[in-house]
Simulated scan of single mutants.
Amino acid sequence: MMQDVIFIHNLQLLASIGVFDWEKQLLQKLEVDVELLTDIRPAASSEQLHQTLDYAAISQRLMQLVQSQHHDLIETLAERMAACLLAEFNTPQVTLTLRKPGAVPAATTVGVRICRQRQEATLD
C-alpha cells in the first residue's frame, strides 16, 4: 500500500511545561513537527477536504491539547500528542518532533522525536 505524508513543520505553541516551580508559573514556547501517514489519492482526485487529513484541524487540536493542562516533561506531552492524533485522525502512523528552545543555555533547542503506530484491535 502506498503511504503518503501530510506534514506540519515548526508549529509554534505556548505551553505550561517543566519540572521546576518557576516553569509552572509561565508559558514557554514549544515547536512541533508532525508527519502523518495517509493516502492522498482520494482527496487529490475529488478535491474534497474531508477525504484527507486537515492540517488546520490537526494544528488546532494540538494547540488545545497543549493548553489543556501543565505537563512536567516533554516526553509525556509528546506521547499524549501522538496518541491524540492516532485516535482522532485517520492515520496509521505519526512521527512527532517536540522541541523546547532555550531549555539548555548552550543549545539552540532540545527535544524528543517519536514514531507511533495505531494499535490494531486483536481478537482474543
Rank of each mutant, 00 (worst) to 15 (best):
L98W: 00
H70E: 02
D39T: 12
E75R: 14
R113V: 10
V34S: 04
V66W: 00
Q3L: 13
H9E: 15
D4R: 07
L14S: 08
V19K: 09
R61G: 03
A83K: 07
P105C: 01
V32I: 08
V5I: 06
A43M: 11
A82T: 06
V94M: 07
F89Q: 03
P92S: 11
I40M: 15
I74N: 03
L13E: 00
I6V: 15
K100M: 01
Q28D: 01
D124P: 14
I6C: 12
C84L: 10
T97H: 10
A44Y: 13
D39M: 03
Q51I: 00
E35I: 10
L77G: 04
C84S: 08
M1A: 08
T108H: 10
E120H: 10
T52Y: 06
V19G: 13
P92D: 07
I74V: 07
A78V: 02
A83I: 01
Q51F: 02
Q60G: 04
I114R: 05
D21K: 11
L27N: 09
Y55C: 01
A106D: 11
K24T: 11
L73S: 07
V19H: 08
L49K: 06
Q3M: 10
A82Y: 02
L85R: 06
T91Q: 10
D33K: 01
K100Y: 12
M1F: 15
T108I: 08
A43P: 05
F7W: 12
A87I: 04
T108L: 12
A103C: 06
V94D: 01
T76W: 09
T122S: 15
H70C: 06
V34I: 14
A43I: 04
G111Y: 02
V32S: 03
P101K: 10
T109F: 00
V5S: 04
D54T: 04
A106N: 12
L14I: 07
V112E: 13
R99G: 07
R99H: 14
D39I: 10
L13W: 00
V32Y: 00
Q67T: 08
Q28S: 09
L37H: 04
T38S: 05
E35Y: 15
T38N: 04
E47N: 14
E88M: 14
R80V: 11
V66T: 05
Q64W: 09
Q64D: 12
L27G: 04
V94H: 00
D54W: 07
P101R: 03
A82V: 06
I40P: 09
